[in-house]
Simulated scan of single mutants.
Amino acid sequence: MGTSSRLLGYVESRKNLTGSVCGLAGVGITLTGAAGGLWPLVVGGLYAAGALIAPPERPDTPHFPNAGEQLDSLRADFATLRDYLDEVELPSATRDGLTELATLVEALLEPGWVSDPDHLHALGRAVRQDIPEAVDTFVRTRWWSRVAPGAEPPERHLERQLSVLHEEMSGIAAALRQAEAIRQEIHTRYLEDRGP
């Protein structure tokens, strides 16, 4: 930060503005003749007192993305993941499980459903880490198993991983369904209690 930036920052600061108002009051006192020959000390003293009592500068509050902004970012990352998954060579049974999981995740990412921070975190972890890592590990392991046959097929691990992820995403969907059912029930009771 240069000298001119610091100077401009001070000119616009609360300390300078409060000090200037107090200094103007000192000029008013001088014009009435009450300060006499000590008017420079009165004006300077009032400016200094105003600058000292002024509230300190506050830094701006940091902006963190809200649930809607997080979902927008997550949707963009999911589109990137979908492009990656479309290019990967997978056995048909595994491809079906992955498609089912991706469809569920896509439904959860629709606007207006997920706003709970824990659910957002789980979705973000699945999209940005768990699914791509599971598929990438499968692709790498599958290549090595072709070179050295006889080990447990990597498809089994991938199918188990996808099953666990599907269960986790289904849990989020079930929680959302339950929340909506409770909301509907509360609204019904409200309408019934309100009467005609």
Rank of each mutant, 00 (worst) to 15 (best):
T3W: 09
L7M: 07
L7Y: 06
V11R: 09
V11I: 15
S13L: 04
N16V: 15
L17A: 11
G19V: 13
G28C: 13
I29F: 08
A34K: 07
A35C: 13
W39I: 08
P40S: 13
V43K: 01
G45E: 07
Y47C: 05
A48Q: 04
A54L: 05
P55H: 04
P55Y: 01
P56K: 12
E57M: 05
R58E: 15
P59H: 12
P59G: 15
D60P: 01
T61M: 10
Q70L: 14
S73R: 09
R75E: 11
D77F: 00
R82C: 06
D86Y: 07
V88W: 01
A93V: 08
T94C: 03
T94A: 01
E100G: 06
L108P: 04
D116P: 02
H119W: 06
H119N: 07
L120G: 02
L120I: 09
R125Q: 14
D130V: 04
I131F: 06
E133Q: 10
V139G: 01
T141R: 11
W143K: 07
W143N: 10
G150H: 03
G150I: 13
A151S: 11
P154C: 13
E155M: 08
R156T: 12
L158V: 13
R160T: 13
S163R: 10
V164E: 03
V164S: 02
L165D: 03
E168Y: 01
G171H: 06
A173M: 10
Q178Y: 10
I182T: 12
Q184Y: 08
Q184H: 12
I186H: 09
R189F: 10
R194V: 06
R194N: 03
R194F: 05
P196E: 15
